[in-house]
Amino acid sequence: MAATSMAAALAASLPAPSAAPAAPTPTYEAIPASMSKVIDIEADIPLTCVQLDGMVVTKIIKHAREAPSTTAHGLLLGLDLDGTLEISNSFPLPHHGGDEADKNTKSIARHQASMLRSLKEVQADDSVVGFYQATTLGAFFNQSLVDTQAIHQEKLRHGGIVIVHDLSQTARGNASFRAYRLTAAFLDAYKKSNFSTTSLISHRLTFSSILEEVPLKIRTNPLLSSFLGTLTESRRPTLSPDSTATTATVSALGASFSVLDLGIAGVTRNLEQIVEAVDSYRTEEGNLSYLCRQIARERGKAENYIAKRKEENQGRVAQGLAPLPEEDVTRLFKIPPEPSRLESLLLLGQIDAYGKSLARTASTGLVKMYATKASSAV
């Protein structure tokens, strides 16, 4: 307490600080809000290509392989430059099971904010340019992906990109990465929340026009390219002094016989997915048909009521009586709105993806079976 009073006394005994000189008034005018976007030249350059760093490829594959489910997803970080979206880093988002969707969303948002803050502290790329999604058998059409991509295309400068990684192709030795974004026609219908029959016809929307693919290329740095080169080169084995010389060469990678797998289990699983998707589509179409019949029934009741009221008013006018007032039909009859057909479009997209995956798998398996039959005959 004595030290505090002494410090206060010393502060009071010091001369008052001189007033700081006033800052000079700027002579330039602030950029008006209407001209702020003109300065951002990159936003006016259309996006023509997505460049994926080799490190991002390995991180996505690792996350998808170690994830507890096939719905592994995460954020992509990078920079758009001269029409090319350069993705230089990524980090996974946690996957939460259960029905507590609100709590899970808040947890993911906190994790995302924490990761971006940490990346900024170490001066790494912290600009979100999209997200990635792991899928199987190429069926990535779902409501969650559409909702997330719609938010990104509204908030991010170049609309954001979704990278789809196919686990089933990677299991066969082919790393599958494709870049997509929502089409302008679908985004317009999505913002209006109108996927009725009339809206689909006016926007010319089908399951194939929901997403548009963007060309994608993978970039590796010289060190990684050198390492991959050493793996693919054949080299002579190290010989001991007492061994005989040989001209045989071995590869840095061990022999793999995974390509000889006929893949029967994959074809069976693919057929099961197609049957499930077709059943879901038939159920959805049945629900839509029921709702449409209900709408037609209510509209018929409303039209009959209006016709009856007009006929009654004509009779009253003929008798010299005042016509009855017209009532609001929407208050008397609850005509439900036309149901959305977005779920049907997404299910059709899944069926199409499963069919294309089955065509690729079956053709490769057919060639392997013929080769096996020919070799066994020998």
Rank of each mutant, 00 (worst) to 15 (best):
V259I: 11
V259D: 10
V259H: 09
V259S: 08
L260Q: 11
D261C: 02
L262D: 01
L262V: 03
G263C: 01
G263F: 06
G263H: 01
G263D: 00
I264E: 05
A265P: 10
G266R: 10
G266M: 08
G266Q: 05
G266L: 04
V267K: 02
R269S: 14
R269W: 13
L271H: 08
E272T: 13
Q273Y: 11
Q273N: 14
Q273K: 12
Q273H: 10
I274D: 00
I274V: 05
I274E: 02
I274Q: 00
I274Y: 00
V275A: 06
E276K: 10
E276I: 06
A277G: 02
A277H: 03
V278R: 01
D279L: 12
D279W: 13
S280G: 10
Y281D: 03
Y281A: 12
R282Q: 14
T283N: 14
T283C: 15
E284K: 07
E284F: 06
E284G: 05
G286E: 11
L288M: 03
Y290G: 05
L291P: 03
C292H: 05
R293Y: 09
Q294P: 09
A296G: 01
R297V: 09
R297L: 15
R297M: 13
E298K: 04
E298C: 10
E298M: 08
R299Y: 01
K301M: 11
K301S: 13
A302D: 00
A302N: 00
A302M: 01
N304A: 12
N304G: 04
N304F: 12
A307Q: 06
K308P: 11
R309D: 04
R309F: 08
R309N: 08
E311M: 05
E311D: 06
